[in-house]
Amino acid sequence: MDVVALTLLGMVLLTVEHALPPVFGTAPNLVVPLVLVLAWRRPTLAGALAAFVLGYLGDLYAGAPPGAGAFALVAVFVAARPVLAQMEYRGLWRPALLGAFAAAAAVGLAGAARWALAGGSMVGALYVLAPRAALTAVCAPLVAWLALRLQTSLGPAAARRDRPGAALPGARRRAGLDLPLR
């Protein structure tokens, strides 16, 4: 339920992102902080599928060859899981810094995928990398707060009760929980 709601929120964020007037030729990546929230609170296949859908839709919004965005967001999701198992993705600085880093990584990964498979150029991606990361850092705390509120209110009771990131097997063991592993 919460993953579906977060996916719908992601679609709204995509709409907002593509409606924003460009700053330094680009706009903040509003979906990346949400994917990081998914990686923190729902580090499961459902979360990865949500990242995939949002990446795919993001490509369609941007009019880019579909697939590169999906690849980038799934990769960010997968890479962020072990990192976020060790920390909380909330507050001001962590969402901002991790969001900026993840946005830069997403730009780089999507650019590289397009360059490798669709004959695209990396120049455009490199050109917008820094401003997109900076703009994402500005917006990430708000998006993360919004996504967390939604996830907390709709997520399963166990997820709300557990320490964030407890869904990861290692974290469950460290927390001393005996919830069944999936």
């Binding site: 060859p65 697939g67 999906a70 995928a113 498979l117 999936r182």
Partner: peptide
């Protein structure tokens, strides 16, 4: 390893989509 395999499949599917579109 189910999740890891699923993640890998999703990554592969993304790249396959991109390749097919190109």
């Amino acid at each position: 390893y189910r999740d890891r395999i699923a993640f890998a499949l999703l990554l592969a599917a993304s790249l396959a989509l991109l390749w097919a579109d190109a």
